[in-house]
Design a protein around this nucleic acid. Structure first.
Lengths: 134, 134
DNA sequence: CTAGGACCTAGACCGGGGTCTAGGTCAACT
DNA sequence: AGTTGACCTAGACCCCGGTCTAGGTCCTAG
C-alpha cells in the first residue's frame, strides 16, 4: 500500500509540513520514493517508521537522536547492537524522566493538599498571604 | 537571611541570567528588593518560591502559567481557590504526561526486547534490514 | 479551456526558554 | 590610584521543533 503525503499525515497525526521536514532532516531511513511527478510515495514501512518516530518524539527524544537511529537503520543489519544501545539509553532517560515527574508530583500534590484544606476550611483562616509560603 | 543573586543561583541551580529573567518576566511574587546600590536582595521566601518554580518548570509548567500563579499570590489570600485550581490543573497534566511516557515506554521496551533477543542470538539471523521493520 | 485540489521547493517566521554581550556601576583590596 | 569581582541594564542571539508562505507543477473534473 502506497500513500500520498496527505494520507500519511492523517494516519500519523503529523502535518504534511512536518513530514517534509523529517525527510529533509534525514529522519527517514532513506529518501522517500517519488512518483513520476516528483510527489512523495510512502510505503507501509515508512508509515510504521513514522509511528515509531512519533513515540520517540512524544517521549522526548530529540530529532538529532532519531536521525542517528535512522542512519543506523540505513546502514544495515550490522548496526543492530548500536541501535539497541541507543534505544536502551533513551529508555533509561524516559524512566528517569518519569521518576523526575513523580518527584515533582509529590511537591505539587502537597501544595494542592495544603491549599485544598485551607480553601475548604473557608478562606477564614488566612495563613498565607505574601511573605509566608507559596 | 538575605542573599545576593549569585548565592541564590548556587542554591537553586538556576543561572543568574535566568534569575533576572524571572524577575523581568513577572514570575516572582513581586519585584525583588534592592540594596542601596540597586543590587537584588533575595529573601528566604524568594528562594523558597524559586524552589517551587523549578519544580513547576521541571514538570513542564510553562513560564506563562507560573506568571499567572505568581500574580494570584501577589493579589493576596482571596485568590487561594484559584491557585488551587491552577495547581490541580497542572497536577492533572503531569499525571497525563506520566501516563503518556509510560505508553511510549512500552513501545520502546518492546523494541528493546526484540533487538535484544536478536543481537543476543548473534547477528547471524538477519531478519531486519531495511524494508522490514525499524 | 479552466478551475480546483493536492502536491512540490526554498526559505522565512514563530514561540519557548533561556544565554550571552556590551557597556557601566559599585565596593573592597593592594 | 588601580584592579578585581560581583553586580546592573538593555538588548541581541541561540536552539529546537515546527509552521507557514510564495511561487510553481501536475492531474482531474466540468
Amino acid at each position: 500500500m502506497e500513500l500520498g503525503i496527505g494520507q500519511v499525515a492523517e494516519r500519523t497525526g503529523m502535518s504534511v509540513h512536518a513530514l517534509r521536514l523529517y525527510e529533509r532532516e534525514g529522519l527517514m531511513t532513506g529518501p522517500v520514493r517519488r512518483d513520476a511527478g516528483g510527489r512523495r510515495v510512502y510505503t507501509e514501512w515508512d508509515v510504521e517508521w513514522l509511528h515509531y518516530c512519533t513515540k520517540f518524539r512524544a517521549s522526548g527524544m530529540p530529532l538529532a537522536k532519531i536521525r542517528k537511529f535512522a542512519d543506523l537503520v540505513r546502514r544495515g543489519p550490522e548496526t543492530e547492537a548500536e541501535r539497541l544501545e541507543l534505544l536502551r539509553e533513551h529508555q533509561e532517560q524516559v524512566v528517569a524522566r518519569i521518576a523526575e515527574l513523580n518527584e515533582c508530583l509529590e511537591v505539587i500534590a502537597s501544595k494542592v493538599r495544603v491549599y485544598g484544606e485551607h480553601v475548604a476550611r473557608g478562606s477564614a483562616a488566612e495563613l498565607w498571604s505574601h511573605p509566608a509560603a507559596p
